[in-house]
Write a protein that binds this DNA or RNA. Sequence first.
DNA 1: ATACGCATTGATAGCGCTACCATTTTCAGG
DNA 2: CCTGAAAATGGTAGCGCTATCAATGCGTAT
Lengths: 354, 354
Amino acid sequence: MARKVSRRGGNIVTIHDVARHVGVSPMTVSRVINGEKNVREETRQKVMEAVEALNYTPNLAARSLASQDSSRIALIYSNPSMSFLSELLLGILEQSSQSGCQLTIESCDGPEGVADVLDKLKATGVDGVVLPPPLSDSSRVAKALKDMKLPFVGVATSRPSPDAPSVSVDDFKAAFAMTSRLIQLGHRRIGFIKGNPNSYYSQLRYEGYVAALAKAGLMAEETLVGQGYFTYRSGFDAAETLLVRADRPTAVFASNDDMAAGAVATAHRLGLDVPRDVTIVGFDDTSMASSVWPELTTVRQPISDMAALALKLLLDQIKTRRAGQTYAPVHEIRDFSIVERQSSAPLGEASTTE
Amino acid sequence: MARKVSRRGGNIVTIHDVARHVGVSPMTVSRVINGEKNVREETRQKVMEAVEALNYTPNLAARSLASQDSSRIALIYSNPSMSFLSELLLGILEQSSQSGCQLTIESCDGPEGVADVLDKLKATGVDGVVLPPPLSDSSRVAKALKDMKLPFVGVATSRPSPDAPSVSVDDFKAAFAMTSRLIQLGHRRIGFIKGNPNSYYSQLRYEGYVAALAKAGLMAEETLVGQGYFTYRSGFDAAETLLVRADRPTAVFASNDDMAAGAVATAHRLGLDVPRDVTIVGFDDTSMASSVWPELTTVRQPISDMAALALKLLLDQIKTRRAGQTYAPVHEIRDFSIVERQSSAPLGEASTTE
DNA sequence: ATACGCATTGATAGCGCTACCATTTTCAGG
DNA sequence: CCTGAAAATGGTAGCGCTATCAATGCGTAT
C-alpha cells in the first residue's frame, strides 16, 4: 500500500515518524518533547536529534485534544492605549500559540462595562480571563470574576487581587529609579505629572518620585506636581501649568508616555527645546515613546514578556483547579529598565543631538 | 456506569450530546454546524435549536485535527507602526480563532530581512503568510514567497501581486476624497506631506491629492509639497518647511497619521494653533490619530476588518491549493471613511472647540 | 540467589470531530 | 405499484497526540 499522502502542506512528520526513526515508542517521544522526567538521558538525546533531523513540530490541535487542556481564555481590555495593547497582544499571542489555547479579545467601556462582557463570555464558555490595566486594578472586576468562579490573572497590576495571580513591575521602585536618575543628571527642580487618581499604580509611581526626592534631600513641592489622567491631552494641559512659571522645573517626569508626549508638545509650544531647556521623561515605553520626537526617555516594562507569563500563570491556575486542588496565586515581579533616549539630558548641558 | 466527568471547565457539551438530544447522528449535527447542504430544513432547525439550548460550541482542536485543515500561518511585519499593527492583530486574531488556525507573529528588518524569517518559517513549517505594509508592497518579498510556493496575502497593498490575493482601500480615491473635503472647507492653499517614496501607496495618495486639486482648478504647487517617510520625525521636519513661510498653506494633508502628528507638533512649536491657524489632517486612523491633541481628522481604513478578511482569503487559497486546484487571486477593496476630529476646521473660522 | 522497589518504556484507548462510504429514505417518471 | 436516481442520514475509521496502566529492566536489601 502506498504511503498515504498528507493533505497538510509540508509537515507530514508526526510523532510516530520520530519514534520509528529512533526506534522507541511514540510515548517516549511525547515524554521528551514535553520535558517530562523519567526518560534516560541517552534516549532523550537520540529523540532530540531525530526531532531536529526530521524537523518535527507537534500538532497543537492533536495535543490539546488529547490532553484535554484546551482552554478558552479571554483578554478583556478597556481604555485601550493601543500601543500598550499591541505589545501585550504580541506576548500573549506567542504564548497562546505555544500553549495551544483559544484566545478571544473583548473590549469594554471601563470597569462598569465588564459585566456585560462577562455575561457574554459565560454564555460562550471561557475558562479564564486576562486583565490588563486599568481593569486589572479594579477590585470590582476582580470581585465579579471571583463570584463567577472564573480564574483570571492581572497584568501590570500594583494591587493584585489576593485570589488571582499577577505579573507586574515594581512601580514604586521604577519611579524611584527614574527620579534618582534625573537627580543624578543634575536636576533639582523636578516636576511630576500624576496619572489617574483611581489607579493604584499611579499612586505608587508618585510615591516613588517623592521618595527619591526625599532621599536626595529634596522636597516634593506641590507646585511642581500636576494632575493628569494618563491621556496625551491631560499631559499637555498639566505641563502647561508647570512650564509657564518663571521658576519652571528643569525636568518633568510624566507617569506615562502619553502624558510625557503631551508635555513635550506643550514645551515646544512654549518655545522650549527638549531636552535643552527641559528634560521630559515618561513611563511604560509604549510605542508612543519612540514615535514622537524627540524620542522619550522612559521606564521600560517588558510588557510582552509579562503578558506571556501572565497567560502561563493563568493556564497553570486553570489546570490546578481542574485537578481539584486549590491554587495559591503567585505574584510575579518583573524587572523594569530605564531607556534613555533623546528627551533627557544632564542639567545645563547645552545641546545633545544635532 | 456513571457519566464520566469532564475535565474541561464547563463546556462538556459535545456534538454527541447535541445529536442525542435531537435524535440524529453526530454526523448530521456536524453537517448542520458546518453549513453543508443535503440536510433537510426541518432537521436543520431542530439541530440548531438543540445547539442553542445546550449552548454547544464546537471544539476547534478536534475539528482541525479531524478535518486536517489546521493551517499554520505567519504574520510577518517590519517597521511596525505599532498602532497599525495592533489593529491588524485584533482583526487577525478574531478570524484566526474562528478558523482555528495557528498564528505566528514574526518581525524583520525591512524587505531585506524577510529572507531570514522565511528560512526559519520554512524549517518550522508554515502554510501561508500574511503581509502588512510595507512588506505587502515589496515585489521582492512577493517573489521570494512565490519561489517558495508559499501562499500569501497582502493587507493594505496598492500594488497587489498578481499571484496573491489582497485586501486594501483605494488610496487614490481616499486621498482624493480627503483633499476634496479640505477644499470644500474653503481651503485653497493645501500642503501635502508625502510618504516614503518607495511605497506605491504613498505615490497613490499623492496622486489623489493632485487630482483633487486639479478638479477644483487648483495647481499642486511644488513648494507646498514636503517629502516625509511616514515617521513622526519626518512629518515634524517637513511641516517646518511648509509652515515657516509667510504664504504658508492653510491646511496640510500628511499622508499618514504619524506624520500628521509630527506636523501638529511643529505647528505648535511655531506658535500656530491647530486648527485655527492651520488645519492638519492625516491618513490611516491609527491610534496615534486619537491620542494626540487635537485629535486628528483622518482617513479611516478598517484595518481590523481588512486583516480578518485577508486571513480568510489566505485560508481559502490554501484550501484550494491543497485540493489541487488553481487559485485565482482576488483583490478586495474595502471602503474608507473620513473621520473629522478636532484638527480640521473651515477656513477662516475663528475657533472650534472650547 | 530471591525479592522488592524504582526508573524507564511500551501498549492501549480514547479526546471531539469529520472524511468517506454505506445505507436508508424520498420522490419522480414509467 | 415498481424502479432508479438523488437526497438525506448513519456507521466506521481515523486525525496526532497523551493519560493510564501494564510491562520491562536494573540495582539493592534480604
